[in-house]
Protein backbone atom coordinates (compact mmCIF):
# COMPACT_ATOMS: atom_id res chain seq x y z
CA UNK A 1 0.00 0.00 0.00
CA UNK A 2 1.46 3.31 -1.09
CA UNK A 3 1.36 6.23 1.29
CA UNK A 4 1.97 9.76 0.17
CA UNK A 5 4.34 12.10 1.99
CA UNK A 6 1.66 13.63 4.21
CA UNK A 7 0.17 10.28 5.19
CA UNK A 8 3.57 8.96 6.09
CA UNK A 9 4.22 12.09 8.13
CA UNK A 10 0.88 11.68 9.91
CA UNK A 11 1.54 8.07 10.76
CA UNK A 12 5.00 8.93 12.05
CA UNK A 13 3.62 11.77 14.13
CA UNK A 14 1.00 9.49 15.70
CA UNK A 15 3.69 6.95 16.49
CA UNK A 16 5.93 9.65 17.92
CA UNK A 17 3.20 11.00 20.17
CA UNK A 18 2.37 7.46 21.31
CA UNK A 19 5.93 6.51 22.09
CA UNK A 20 6.69 9.84 23.74
CA UNK A 21 3.79 9.13 26.04
CA UNK A 22 5.26 5.69 26.66
CA UNK A 23 8.56 7.39 27.53
CA UNK A 24 6.75 9.50 30.11
CA UNK A 25 5.21 6.38 31.64
CA UNK A 26 8.54 4.55 31.63
CA UNK A 27 10.36 7.45 33.22
CA UNK A 28 7.90 7.29 36.12
CA UNK A 29 8.44 3.58 36.48
CA UNK A 30 12.21 3.59 36.09
CA UNK A 31 13.00 6.93 37.68
CA UNK A 32 15.17 7.94 34.79
CA UNK A 33 15.09 10.32 31.86
CA UNK A 34 13.79 8.41 28.88
CA UNK A 35 13.28 9.42 25.28
CA UNK A 36 11.57 7.46 22.58
CA UNK A 37 11.27 8.60 19.01
CA UNK A 38 10.13 7.14 15.72
CA UNK A 39 12.35 8.43 12.93
CA UNK A 40 10.85 6.24 10.22
CA UNK A 41 7.60 4.46 9.43
CA UNK A 42 7.15 1.96 6.60
CA UNK A 43 4.32 -0.20 5.29
CA UNK A 44 5.33 -3.46 3.62
CA UNK A 45 3.68 -6.73 2.59
CA UNK A 46 4.29 -9.58 5.03
CA UNK A 47 6.78 -11.42 2.81
CA UNK A 48 9.10 -8.41 2.87
CA UNK A 49 8.86 -7.74 6.56
CA UNK A 50 12.00 -9.50 7.84
CA UNK A 51 14.06 -7.76 5.19
CA UNK A 52 12.49 -4.36 5.78
CA UNK A 53 13.14 -4.56 9.51
CA UNK A 54 16.88 -4.32 8.83
CA UNK A 55 17.87 -6.55 11.71
CA UNK A 56 20.42 -9.35 11.51
CA UNK A 57 18.24 -12.43 10.79
CA UNK A 58 20.60 -14.64 12.81
CA UNK A 59 20.87 -12.44 15.87
CA UNK A 60 18.68 -13.06 18.88
CA UNK A 61 15.79 -10.68 19.29
CA UNK A 62 13.65 -10.07 22.38
CA UNK A 63 10.04 -9.53 21.40
CA UNK A 64 6.95 -8.48 23.33
CA UNK A 65 3.58 -8.61 21.63
CA UNK A 66 -0.05 -7.82 22.28
CA UNK A 67 -2.79 -8.57 19.81
CA UNK A 68 -5.55 -6.06 19.31
CA UNK A 69 -9.12 -6.24 18.11
CA UNK A 70 -11.74 -3.70 17.14
CA UNK A 71 -12.34 -1.98 13.83
CA UNK A 72 -8.79 -2.95 12.93
CA UNK A 73 -7.32 -6.22 14.13
CA UNK A 74 -3.82 -7.55 14.33
CA UNK A 75 -0.76 -7.94 16.50
CA UNK A 76 1.67 -5.32 17.71
CA UNK A 77 5.17 -6.66 18.20
CA UNK A 78 7.94 -4.69 19.83
CA UNK A 79 11.47 -5.95 19.19
CA UNK A 80 14.91 -5.15 20.52
CA UNK A 81 18.19 -6.95 19.85
CA UNK A 82 18.52 -9.39 22.77
CA UNK A 83 21.94 -8.07 23.69
CA UNK A 84 20.65 -4.52 23.98
CA UNK A 85 17.54 -5.42 25.93
CA UNK A 86 19.62 -7.41 28.40
CA UNK A 87 22.07 -4.57 28.85
CA UNK A 88 19.21 -2.14 29.28
CA UNK A 89 17.52 -4.26 31.93
CA UNK A 90 20.81 -4.75 33.75
CA UNK A 91 21.38 -1.00 33.73
CA UNK A 92 17.86 -0.31 34.96
CA UNK A 93 17.44 -3.01 37.55
CA UNK A 94 21.08 -2.83 38.50
CA UNK A 95 22.05 -3.61 42.06
CA UNK A 96 19.21 -6.01 42.84
CA UNK A 97 20.58 -8.37 40.19
CA UNK A 98 23.97 -8.65 41.83
CA UNK A 99 24.63 -12.21 42.77
CA UNK A 100 21.55 -13.54 41.01
CA UNK A 101 22.03 -16.91 39.30
CA UNK A 102 21.69 -17.34 35.54
CA UNK A 103 18.11 -18.60 35.84
CA UNK A 104 17.09 -15.71 38.05
CA UNK A 105 18.71 -13.29 35.63
CA UNK A 106 16.74 -14.64 32.73
CA UNK A 107 13.55 -14.45 34.78
CA UNK A 108 14.26 -10.86 35.72
CA UNK A 109 15.04 -9.86 32.14
CA UNK A 110 11.96 -11.58 30.85
CA UNK A 111 9.70 -9.92 33.43
CA UNK A 112 11.18 -6.48 33.04
CA UNK A 113 11.10 -6.54 29.24
CA UNK A 114 7.53 -7.78 29.25
CA UNK A 115 6.40 -4.90 31.44
CA UNK A 116 8.40 -2.31 29.50
CA UNK A 117 7.02 -3.67 26.21
CA UNK A 118 3.51 -3.75 27.66
CA UNK A 119 3.73 -0.02 28.44
CA UNK A 120 5.27 0.93 25.09
CA UNK A 121 2.76 -1.05 23.01
CA UNK A 122 -0.24 0.11 25.03
CA UNK A 123 0.71 3.78 24.86
CA UNK A 124 1.58 3.59 21.19
CA UNK A 125 -1.63 1.84 20.25
CA UNK A 126 -3.75 4.07 22.49
CA UNK A 127 -2.66 7.26 20.74
CA UNK A 128 -3.11 5.76 17.28
CA UNK A 129 -6.58 4.49 18.21
CA UNK A 130 -7.63 7.74 19.90
CA UNK A 131 -6.45 10.02 17.13
CA UNK A 132 -8.11 7.88 14.49
CA UNK A 133 -11.30 7.48 16.52
CA UNK A 134 -11.01 3.72 16.77
CA UNK A 135 -11.99 1.41 19.58
CA UNK A 136 -9.24 -1.04 20.35
CA UNK A 137 -9.10 -3.88 22.82
CA UNK A 138 -5.71 -5.39 23.64
CA UNK A 139 -4.74 -8.89 24.74
CA UNK A 140 -2.37 -9.78 27.54
CA UNK A 141 1.25 -9.32 26.52
CA UNK A 142 3.46 -12.24 25.52
CA UNK A 143 7.24 -12.50 25.38
CA UNK A 144 9.66 -14.52 23.32
CA UNK A 145 13.30 -14.59 22.37
CA UNK A 146 14.49 -15.96 19.08
CA UNK A 147 15.74 -14.93 15.70
CA UNK A 148 13.68 -12.56 13.62
CA UNK A 149 12.25 -15.01 11.05
CA UNK A 150 11.11 -17.36 13.84
CA UNK A 151 9.41 -14.59 15.75
CA UNK A 152 7.58 -13.25 12.70
CA UNK A 153 6.60 -16.74 11.62
CA UNK A 154 5.17 -17.57 15.05
CA UNK A 155 3.21 -14.35 15.26
CA UNK A 156 1.82 -14.85 11.76
CA UNK A 157 0.84 -18.48 12.30
CA UNK A 158 -2.87 -17.76 12.76
CA UNK A 159 -3.08 -15.69 9.61
CA UNK A 160 -2.53 -18.47 7.08
CA UNK A 161 -4.28 -17.75 3.81
CA UNK A 162 -4.84 -14.11 4.57
CA UNK A 163 -2.95 -11.36 2.85
CA UNK A 164 -1.01 -9.63 5.60
CA UNK A 165 0.82 -6.35 5.82
CA UNK A 166 3.09 -4.80 8.38
CA UNK A 167 3.35 -1.22 9.54
CA UNK A 168 6.94 -0.89 10.74
CA UNK A 169 8.01 1.83 13.12
CA UNK A 170 11.73 2.23 13.63
CA UNK A 171 12.13 3.26 17.25
CA UNK A 172 14.98 4.97 18.98
CA UNK A 173 15.05 4.52 22.75
CA UNK A 174 17.33 6.47 25.05
CA UNK A 175 17.46 5.20 28.63
CA UNK A 176 20.08 4.76 31.32
CA UNK A 177 22.61 6.62 29.14
CA UNK A 178 22.15 4.01 26.44
CA UNK A 179 20.67 4.21 23.00
CA UNK A 180 18.77 1.26 21.65
CA UNK A 181 17.36 0.80 18.18
CA UNK A 182 14.14 -1.17 18.22
CA UNK A 183 11.25 -1.91 15.93
CA UNK A 184 7.54 -1.89 16.52
CA UNK A 185 5.56 -3.86 13.98
CA UNK A 186 1.81 -3.80 13.57
CA UNK A 187 0.99 -7.01 11.74
CA UNK A 188 -2.46 -6.71 10.18
CA UNK A 189 -4.55 -8.03 7.33
CA UNK A 190 -4.74 -5.85 4.23
CA UNK A 191 -8.38 -5.10 5.08
CA UNK A 192 -7.51 -3.94 8.57
CA UNK A 193 -4.70 -1.75 7.28
CA UNK A 194 -7.20 -0.27 4.82
CA UNK A 195 -9.63 0.56 7.65
CA UNK A 196 -6.80 2.27 9.54
CA UNK A 197 -5.69 4.25 6.50
CA UNK A 198 -9.25 5.29 5.70
CA UNK A 199 -9.40 6.80 9.19
CA UNK A 200 -6.06 8.46 8.62
CA UNK A 201 -7.31 10.04 5.37
CA UNK A 202 -10.43 11.22 7.13
CA UNK A 203 -8.35 12.85 9.86
CA UNK A 204 -6.10 14.56 7.32
CA UNK A 205 -9.03 15.74 5.21
CA UNK A 206 -10.60 17.33 8.28
CA UNK A 207 -7.55 19.55 8.85
Amino acid sequence: MELDELERDALRELANVGLSRAATQLSELLNDHIEMTVPLVQVVPYDQVTQALQLDPHAMVAAVWQSFSGQSEGTSILMFPSEDSKRLVRALVGPSMLGAGEDDLRGIEHEAMMEIGNIIITSGMAVIADMLGQEVRMSLPGYMEGNLPDIMEQRNRDNAGREMQAIIMFTHLKAAQREIEGRMVMLMSVDSVQVLFDRLHKLLRSL
Partner: peptide, 22 residues
Amino acid sequence: ANTQRTVVDSALAVGFIQVVEK
Protein backbone atom coordinates in the same frame (compact mmCIF):
# COMPACT_ATOMS: atom_id res chain seq x y z
CA ALA B 1 3.69 14.01 24.57
CA ASN B 2 6.81 13.43 26.61
CA THR B 3 5.74 15.20 29.80
CA GLN B 4 8.18 13.55 32.18
CA ARG B 5 9.66 15.67 34.94
CA THR B 6 13.12 15.99 33.40
CA VAL B 7 11.67 17.36 30.16
CA VAL B 8 9.26 19.78 31.86
CA ASP B 9 11.99 20.94 34.25
CA SER B 10 14.46 21.56 31.43
CA ALA B 11 11.84 23.63 29.60
CA LEU B 12 10.89 25.70 32.63
CA ALA B 13 14.56 26.26 33.42
CA VAL B 14 15.06 27.86 30.00
CA GLY B 15 12.03 30.08 30.53
CA PHE B 16 9.19 28.28 28.76
CA ILE B 17 5.91 29.53 30.17
CA GLN B 18 4.03 26.30 29.59
CA VAL B 19 4.20 22.71 28.41
CA VAL B 20 1.20 21.57 26.36
CA GLU B 21 0.64 17.86 26.04
CA LYS B 22 0.32 16.39 22.56
